[in-house]
Write a protein that binds this DNA or RNA. Structure first.
Lengths: 230, 230
DNA sequence: GTCGCCATGATTGTCAACAATTCTGTTGAA
DNA sequence: TTCAACAGAATTGTTGACAATCATGGCGAC
């Protein structure tokens, strides 16, 4: 066995950096409004500045980061209206996908989901928020990919990405993680039982907590920032 | 009156270049499989290479262009399956949006659509495919923006963009352009009459021609390329 | 004649220096 | 004290040179 030193190119490395920054945002390690200085990130993450630059451009396109010319990049702060709109689209998309998942589901899908969920449950049990986040993403991708339309899956993921900046509240909370775990188990069970209505309902319900937690927090913050002016 | 020489920065210029290239693809000026050489484009469009680079990265993200490391960028060739999947999602999204357009519609919306359609009709009459394409995009944006959810509109546009590479057949055909014009007029009329069902049906029907034309052409091409091998 | 190999050219990928812009803190006058 | 102007620092934006990589075509061996 030979350890191949694979040499990635800028675009790929930038993707990796973007993913890393995305995680740090979701986990609340990078907070909204926080400034993202190119050289700083470049040094910390061990890449050249132009790679960071490209990563930031990607995160801007995705909507996680805001960039103003000559001033730099910031973690974007979503306002409650926007969050509501995004979640409304997510609901429609995920319902659409869930309705196209073949029922009865192939064993292959069920065992795959169970396997992923084991990893997720383990991460939740050990309180490893990062691992939980990763497993969570993989679970949803595998679930919706079963609808058979990769382009629909892509949209679902894109919309999920958009609100990652709004998820630092729930992504680190043991309570919310446990709830997510239980709902995942419920989805698997619904698929196994061939109960489509229940699956769709669970998907919809699954979106609620993080949305509501963020909106509550954001509205409190907005109210505050109004009284303090700016 | 003073002509301000506004100085755009790379990101913005890249957006413009990307839009230009997109148009050239839609109008069939750049064909699928055609190679896009950075320096060549840079010179032709009057920008530095790194701007073209960023534009190509964006077009790759969108799905109009394919890039292989160290080999360059090509106009992406969509296979019929993919096109079908994308159009299926488009149908769902546009239906969803059309169902949320307020009825009766505000006069403001109607007059706006009429105004845009006048420009479109004029372009169709004069056979100006580029102007028709632009007016067409503006029409659809204005139409779906009326649903009130900008994020849904964004998705609709993203999916439309994806198949731009498949539209060179219809985008330049006088016949198809005339049909599109009539359908637009039908939509305006449906909105005016408050006939939501008709609007939704028209939107769905509106997607058909370019999809079917491309699939027919592509299947012929695939069949050919199979016999000729490669 | 065909296959494989190397030299060459065309193209993309990487980098670090430089330019331009914005931000911060200080000074001095009203 | 407050404000404006200004210098200096911090940061982003731009450029051209250089390195790495891949396609092409010629040449020789079989």
């Amino acid at each position: 066995m030979q350890t191949t030193v694979l040499k990635l190119q800028t675009t790929d490395r930038a993707r990796g950096i973007a993913a890393t920054l995305e995680e740090e945002i979701v986990l609340g390690w990078l907070m909204p409004r926080e400034r993202l200085v190119e050289e700083e990130l470049a040094e910390r993450l061990g890449v050249k500045r132009h790679v960071v630059r490209e990563a930031l451009a990607e995160l801007e396109r995705v909507g996680l980061v805001e960039r103003v010319p000559n001033r730099g990049a910031f973690v974007r702060l979503l306002d409650p209206t926007e969050v509501r709109q995004i979640y409304s689209v997510r609901e429609a998309l995920e319902t659409l996908a869930a309705e196209q998942i073949p029922m009865p589901a192939p064993d292959r899908l069920l065992s795959r989901l169970k396997e992923i969920q084991d990893a997720h449950s383990a991460a939740v049990a050990s309180g490893d928020a990062r691992a939980a986040f990763r497993a969570n993403m993989i679970f949803h991708e595998a679930l919706f990919a079963a609808c058979g339309n990769p382009h629909l899956v892509e949209l679902i993921q894109a919309m999920a990405q958009k609100v990652h900046g709004a998820r630092s509240i729930t992504a680190a909370s043991a309570e919310h993680l446990a709830l997510a775990r239980d709902e995942h188990l419920g989805m698997i069970e619904a698929i196994r039982a061939g109960d489509r209505a229940r699956l769709v309902a669970l998907c919809r319900k699954h979106l609620g907590p993080s949305r509501d937690a963020y909106i509550a927090a954001a509205e409190a913050r907005f109210a505050r920032s109004k009284t303090i002016a700016r």
